Simulated scan of single mutants.
Amino acid sequence: MGLRGERVVVIGGTAGIGFAVAEAAAREGADVVVASRRQESVDAALQRLPEGAEGYVLDATDEDAVRTFFGHLGGLDHLVYTAGESLLLEGLAAQDLARARRFLDTRLWGAYSAVKYGAPSIRKGGSVVLTTGTAGRRPMPGTSVAASLCGAMESLTRALALELAPLRVNAVSPGVVRTELWRDLPEREREGLYTSSAGSLPVGRVGEPADVAEAYVYLMRGGYTTGSVVVVDGGGVLI
């Protein structure tokens, strides 16, 4: 049930939730590989991860690059996809469609491409863990793009769990988590969001990346779980 000696590849694994997943997997004894778009992010992550971790520069929206990456990588046991740009929080009338497409390219089509080219290298008993969000279940004004993405990722998870069986495919759905994904909000507005969210959540606080990473580790270890979406949101979907 553990991850000791298994190879875990985290695309988007140099910051936020992805880095927390890489750290958690390494603590479980896994051999960790992280990939991100920027070399400086990869270098910084490797300085903080245990010796032996691997890091690569990868643009998840470049299909040829993704194909080449997995072709050179060799065998793996678990593929985790957490890559994503800053959250899009704009009303429909103000939405820049080009930016919305880029958002979906990274989060949806990047994940699709990673599974397409990575799944053949996953060893028996391995898994894929994707990332969605609670906006699909609890949308708010200004979240139409994010909500659309989340709905698509949940459906993709279930479809791939059937198509790729017995390879297990699951997803994690975080709520409000204190990560770089909120960096486009002005600091005062961002801190106000954290404060108001904490006050409304049953757990009384917003999430930290390490909170969410535990769900990814569970889904990698849980050999009887597939086609599932695990919500980690402090009870947000209840209120």
Rank of each mutant, 00 (worst) to 15 (best):
R188E: 15
T61L: 02
G91H: 07
E40H: 12
E163R: 00
F69C: 09
G18I: 05
E6S: 14
T82W: 00
I239R: 15
G2F: 07
V42M: 00
A114G: 07
L164G: 13
A22D: 07
L164F: 07
E208P: 07
L193C: 08
H78E: 11
A210P: 11
S155C: 11
S148K: 00
N170Y: 03
A24N: 12
G151R: 13
E214I: 00
D96R: 10
L201W: 03
R205V: 07
S86H: 13
G207F: 12
Q39Y: 04
G5D: 00
G199D: 04
A94I: 12
T143W: 15
A210W: 15
V177L: 00
E90S: 10
S197F: 01
G207E: 04
L49R: 04
Y216L: 04
S121Y: 14
V212R: 01
E214F: 00
P139C: 12
A152N: 02
G199S: 11
L88E: 05
A165W: 08
Q39A: 12
A114S: 14
A171I: 07
M140F: 15
G136R: 15
A20P: 07
R48L: 10
D211N: 01
A44K: 13
S197W: 02
L46Y: 12
P50C: 10
V232Q: 06
I122W: 10
D211Y: 09
E189N: 03
N170C: 07
A135H: 06
E85A: 09
A146T: 03
G91R: 07
L181N: 06
L238G: 10
A44V: 09
T61C: 01
L160Y: 08
V32K: 09
R102P: 00
D43V: 13
I11R: 10
E154T: 06
D43Y: 05
F70A: 04
T82K: 05
V42G: 06
V217L: 15
T195N: 10
L108W: 13
S121G: 09
G236N: 15
M1E: 10
E187D: 08
A30V: 01
G2S: 15
E180G: 04
R37V: 04
P141T: 01
R138Q: 12
L160E: 13
G235R: 10
A161F: 05
R137Q: 13
A53S: 14
D59C: 02
G222V: 02
A215D: 09
Q47N: 14
L58W: 11
G12T: 01
L88V: 13
V9E: 11
